[in-house]
Simulated assay, not measured.
Amino acid sequence: MLALVVLSGCATVAASPAPPAAAAVTVTNCGREVTVPAPPARAVTMEQNATEILLSLGLADRMAGTSYQTDPVLPALASAYAGVPVLAKLYPSREKVLETRPDFVYSTFTSAYAPDAAGPRAGLGELGIPAYLSRFACEKSPAGFTFDGLFQEIEEVASLFGVRDRGASLVAAQRARLAAATKHDETSVLWYYSGTSTPYVAGKGGVPAAVSSRLGLRNVYGEAGVTWPAGNWEQIATRNPAWIVVADLTRGGDGDSARSKMDFLRSNPVTSKLDAVKAGRFITVPGSSLDPSVRSIDALEAVNARL
C-alpha cells in the first residue's frame, strides 16, 4: 500500500498508474450523470483549485494538462506540478483542451465550461469526455460552501479515479486539522476581498462564512444575501470590526494585494479610525484559500492562529 505523506498542510501520495481494469463509476454531479468507464488516465484540470486536488491525491501522472494558475503551487505539490503540461495562462480554448485527448475534465468554476473555454459539459459528454464541476459552482443552485461538502467532493473525485483510499487519507488529514481549531467568542471580523472605492467583502455561503462559523466569529456582513457583496466604508465604520481579514490576490488590480489593502485602510480618512486599523489587527490570507479547495483549511488555520 502506498504511504501517505503530509507536507506543508497538504496530504499527498506517491503517484501510481491507473488500475489496469475497473468497473465504470457513475456519480450525479450538478444535475448530470458523470460516468468514467475506467479510472481516467488523461485528465485536464481547468484551474488551480482542481489541479491541487488531483495533485494531492497523487494523480500527477494521470494529468494531460492544467491551466489558470493564480498563485505559486503549494510547496508539497510543486515537483509533481512541474511535470504536468500547462495548456494556457488562463483558460485554454475548447480546441486546445481537445488536442490533449482528455478522458476527464475537472473544474471548480462554471466559467471553465463557457463556449470560449472548454465548452459546455453536455458537449464534452457527447464527445465521450466526462466533465466534472464542483458542487459549489453548479450551473443551477450551487451549494453553499461547507467543509463537509468539500470533503465529500474530494472523496467523490477519488472514487472516479479509483483511489478511494487516497481520498479517505486526504480527508482524514484535513478533518484532523479542522478539529484542532478553537472558538473565539463571537469576535467580529470583516473579510476584505478586493477593491478600494467599492470594497468587496464576504457575505454568506462561501469559505469565509464557513470559517467564521467554525471559529465562532461574527462576520459583520454575515447577513448579506450573496457570497461576495459590495460593501461601503461608512457602513463598515459603523460596524467597526475587531479584526480585518485581508485577501492577498496576485492579479494586480486596485486593492488586490494585501499590502495595498492595508495601506489604503491606514490612509483613508474613514477607515483609518477603525479600531482594527488603529491596533493593526489584520490577518492576511492568500486569495486562493478563500475558494473551495485543499487550501481552504489553510485560511481557517491562519485566522485561528492570529486570533
Rank of each mutant, 00 (worst) to 15 (best):
R218G: 09
R218Y: 10
R218D: 11
N219P: 00
V220I: 14
V220Q: 01
V220T: 08
V220N: 02
Y221N: 00
G222T: 09
G222D: 12
G222R: 12
E223K: 12
E223H: 09
E223S: 07
A224E: 13
A224M: 14
A224P: 03
A224K: 15
V226G: 12
V226R: 15
W228T: 06
W228M: 09
W228Y: 14
P229T: 06
P229E: 06
P229V: 05
P229M: 06
A230Y: 12
A230V: 05
G231V: 02
N232H: 10
N232W: 14
W233Y: 00
W233R: 07
E234L: 07
E234H: 13
E234D: 15
Q235C: 09
Q235W: 12
Q235P: 00
Q235L: 15
I236A: 06
A237W: 02
T238N: 13
T238F: 10
R239F: 07
R239L: 10
R239C: 05
N240E: 06
N240R: 01
P241G: 05
A242T: 13
W243H: 10
W243F: 09
W243L: 00
W243M: 00
W243D: 04
I244E: 03
I244W: 03
I244F: 02
I244N: 02
V245E: 05
V245L: 01
V246I: 13
V246S: 09
D248Y: 08
L249T: 08
L249E: 09
T250H: 02
T250W: 03
T250K: 03
T250Y: 01
R251S: 02
G252Q: 01
G253M: 08
G253L: 08
D254Y: 00
D254Q: 11
G255P: 14
G255T: 07
G255C: 05
G255W: 07
G255D: 08
D256M: 01
D256P: 01
D256T: 01
D256N: 03
S257L: 09
S257F: 09
S257G: 00
S257A: 14
A258I: 05
R259C: 00
R259I: 00
S260V: 07
S260G: 11
K261S: 08
K261L: 15
K261Y: 07
M262I: 15
D263S: 15
D263Q: 13
D263V: 00
L265A: 07
L265V: 01
L265N: 03
L265F: 03
R266T: 11
R266W: 06
R266C: 11
R266L: 06
S267L: 14
S267V: 11
S267G: 15
P269K: 13
T271F: 03
T271E: 08
T271M: 05
T271W: 02
S272D: 00
S272K: 08
S272H: 08
S272I: 05
S272M: 06
K273E: 10
K273C: 05
L274P: 06
L274A: 03
D275W: 09
D275N: 12
A276Y: 04
A276G: 06
A276I: 02
V277M: 04
V277E: 05
K278Q: 14
A279F: 01
A279S: 15
A279M: 09
G280Y: 05
R281D: 02
I283Q: 13
I283C: 06
T284A: 14
T284W: 03
V285K: 02
